[in-house]
Amino acid sequence: MIQVKGLYKSFGNQHVLRGVDMQIQAGEAAIIIGRSGGGKSVLLKHLTGLICPDKGEIKINGIDIVGMQERELLKIRREMAVMFQGAALFDSMTVGENVGFYLQREGKKTAAEIAKAVESTLELVDLRGVENKWPSDLSGGMKKRVGLARAIIHNPSIVFYDEPTAGLDPVVSDSIDKLIKRICEVKKVTTVVITHDMRTTRTVGERVFMLSEGQIYLTLTPDELFASKDPKVYQFVNGISEGDDII
């Protein structure tokens, strides 16, 4: 379970998060939506302990991670996985080495066991026979799949996705959405997706948090979101840029 209370973060004079409160239940698929530059990725980096807040509380499975040293956080992060917006694959390693990185560093499995785990995890994300390719040889969608395979190989209980469909065509986006949904169901993980893609919200989400002006403006189900007549929600969902910039 993820609990966030009164989370504040500023970069200089820019107040990005202004008191975020939210709670995501174990096994839930939560979507965090909001305008570009609205602080979604900053919020995700807080949830994963990559950024320390100015003020507030973040509890992951009941443990407050705010103020923890990096080495303490590493233990908490064993339960987490992150798929980064640009995949963030290690470009000096092959796909197989990228995916097997966690297990190789952990040092508990033999090379053959790691190779088998890499193969099965790549199959789970619909990739086969790409172990020896380099990240530079892959398309954007394939990179995201490899990034996801690398993230979930150690069976985490929480998976974070940062803009999983950004920069992908609708067909590949749909396949990524279905993949996220499948992993959520197969692995029974808590899923947190940062996106402004409404299709991802509809396909993957069980609950939607709308981030606006540094706070959680509304929490709804996807059906409620798409039926909402709230001006901010309506403007965002329908992508209306006319009128006042109210979001």
Binding site: V82, A88, D91, F101, R105, E106, R150
Partner: peptide, 17 residues
């Protein structure tokens, strides 16, 4: 390059200091 392309953040999330 690793820093600006989030590879170091990725390392941190992969239980590696």
């Amino acid at each position: 390059t690793m820093k600006v392309s989030e590879q170091i953040d990725a390392l941190r999330t992969l239980n590696t200091h």
